[in-house]
Design a protein around this nucleic acid. Sequence first.
DNA 1: AACAATATCACAAACGTTTGTGTAAATGGG
DNA 2: CCCATTTACACAAACGTTTGTGATATTGTT
Lengths: 328, 328
Amino acid sequence: MAATIKDIAKMAGVSPATVSRVLSNQREFYSEKTAKKVRDAAKQLGYQRNTSAVELVTRKSRVIAVLVSSTQTNFSNPILNGIQQQAEAHNLSVMIIFAGENKPEMQEKALQTVIERSVMGILLVAVDLDPTNNALLESANIPFIFISMTMKNANFPFISSNDFDIGYQATKYLIKKGHTKIGFAGTDLNSFVGNLRFEGYRDAMRDNQLARKAEWVCGGHFTYEDGLKAMRQYGQKTELTAVIASSDLVGIGILNQANQYGIRVPGNLAILTVDGTQLCDIVRPKLSSVTQSFFEMGVKGMDMLVSESIKEFYSMYTPINIVERESV
Amino acid sequence: MAATIKDIAKMAGVSPATVSRVLSNQREFYSEKTAKKVRDAAKQLGYQRNTSAVELVTRKSRVIAVLVSSTQTNFSNPILNGIQQQAEAHNLSVMIIFAGENKPEMQEKALQTVIERSVMGILLVAVDLDPTNNALLESANIPFIFISMTMKNANFPFISSNDFDIGYQATKYLIKKGHTKIGFAGTDLNSFVGNLRFEGYRDAMRDNQLARKAEWVCGGHFTYEDGLKAMRQYGQKTELTAVIASSDLVGIGILNQANQYGIRVPGNLAILTVDGTQLCDIVRPKLSSVTQSFFEMGVKGMDMLVSESIKEFYSMYTPINIVERESV
DNA sequence: AACAATATCACAAACGTTTGTGTAAATGGG
DNA sequence: CCCATTTACACAAACGTTTGTGATATTGTT
C-alpha cells in the first residue's frame, strides 16, 4: 500500500540506492538535478520511510526507552519533560513504558520489550530495579541510566539528588530555625534512598548534639495517606515542633491532619517537604521544601545517554536547594 | 553480537524456519522433541527477538502510539494508566510522545514519527489537532482515536466526556443548591470544548429563567494562575455566590484568592470544579467536582483501537458524575 | 504389503532499507 | 586531444525474521 523507496526510484528514473542517499542527504553522492526529481516524486507519493527496515539494516534505532515506575509520585512529569526536550534536540524518539509498581515480573517484561526493540538507550525513572533483573539489564549491551534513584549496587550509573544530603540539609535547616525535636516521616527505612535520607537526618541531629526518639520516624511510600498516618501516629499532643516530609504529598497529609488536630502550621508545627513541586504553592500555608532539580535530571539523563562517554559508568548528583515558603 | 534465529538453528540442528515456528508456538509445525532443543538453545544463547525484523516482514507492529499534549493538566496520568493497563491486557507496547503545546509544527513532527513506525494505532490524548494536520493523520491509514478532546471536525472518532453536559449539569447542580449568580471561569470560549461547556452553562441558566452577565465568565487554559486571575477579576465584592471552575487547579486558584479576599468558601462563595482528581481531596475545604472518568477513557480508547469495529468512525462519551465534598 | 494420509521439517522468497563497490560519464590539466 | 581524476549513478548484498510450498519420513488403513 504505502509507497516505498523503489516506487520513488521508478518514478524518478533512478536506482533505489540513489533515492536513499538523496533522502538522507548524503551530498557527495548525487547531483542537485536528480535530487529534485527524487524529492518531488517522494512528496507526490506521500512517502514515509519505514523505520523497521532502517533499524534492521543499520542495526540501531533512534529511540530512547523510558521505564517509569507507576507508583505515581507527581514528580515524574518534570523529569519526562526534561527528557522530551532533549530528545527533540537530539532528534530522538521517546518510548515511555510503565514498569509497574516495582514488581519484579513487570519490570522484567518491560525490559524485555525495550531490549527486543534494540533501543539506543534506556532511562529508568524512579524504578527500584529488583536485583533479579540486574543481569538482564546488563546483558543487553544497551546504555542505561537510573534517574532519581540510586542503587545499592553502586555499579549502575545514575542521576539523582544526593539523598543523604537531602536528609542532612533539611535537618540542619530546621535546627538553624531553632527546632530540636524533629520528625521524619513518609519513607521506608528499608529502601535504599529512604535509608540514605535517614542517615543524613541522623547525622545532622548528632552533629548538633540533639537526641532522637524512635517514634519520631514514620515509614511510608511518599503518599498523601502516609502523611495523614504519620501525623496520627505523632498524635494531637506531640512534642515535635517540626517534621520533615518525604514528599510534597506527605507534607500536605501532615498539614491537613495537623489542622484537624488544631495544631497550627507553622505556629505549633513546622513542615519541610522534599520535592518542591507545584503542590507546595497551591496549599495554605505554602509548604517550604527541599526542592529537587527534576527537570534537570531529565535533561542530563538524556544528554549522558547520547554522549559516548557513558562507557565508564559515570553518575552525578543534581543540585538541591531549600525554598522558603510559609510552613516553617 | 546478539544471537539470531540462525544461531539457534545451527545449535539445535534445525532450520531457521523451524526455530521461528517453535518460538511463536505454531504447534502444528514441529514435534515436541525438536521444540525442546530449540528452546534450550534459545535460552542458552540469551536470544532476544529482533522486533524490527519481525515488523518489517509482518508489516504490522504491536505498538500503540500515544500523542499527548504537553499542556500539563494533571488528568493525563489516569488516562495513561488506563491505556497502559489495557495495553498489557492485549500484549501491546505503548509509545508515548509529547506533541507540544498544541503547536501545529510539533504536532506534525510527532505524527511523522509515529507514522514512520507504522504503529498499529494512535491515541491522541487532549491534543487539539491543528486542521492543517488532519490530512496527514488520515492519510496514514492507521486507526486513531481522540481522547478527552472532541473536535469541531465531527468525522474523527473520540472518547470524551460530554462537555455540553458538564456545563449543564454543573450549573443545574448549583442552581438546585439555591445559587442564582454563577460564575464560569478558566476556559477559552474560542476553543471547541470551552464553547461547548459554556453553552451548557448558558442553557441551564436559561432553562431556569436566570439572567447572566458577561463579566461572570472568565477565559483561561485550565491553569492555577487562571484561577487566581479569574477571582481577581470577580473582585473582593463580587455578587457571585458560586463559580464553576474549568479544572481542579483553576478551582484551587479561585479558592486561594477568595480566601485572601476574606471570602469564605463555601460560606460566601461555592466552588464547583471540573475534573475531580486527587487535588480536590487534599485542599481545604475539599472541592466538590464534576468528576470525569479519565481512567475509563484510557481503557475504552485502547479497547476500541484494537477492536476491528473502528472502521466506522465510532465515538462515545464516558460518564460524568458530581462528587459532593465541602466547597458548595 | 501397498498405498494414502499425515506429521515434521527445510528451502527460499520476501519485507524496505543502507552501503560498499563497480562503472560510465563528465571534467580537468598539460 | 589524451590520460587522470572526479562526479554521478547503479548493482547487489545484507540486516533478521515470517511463511508458502515442497520434500521426506512416519503413521494408519485395508
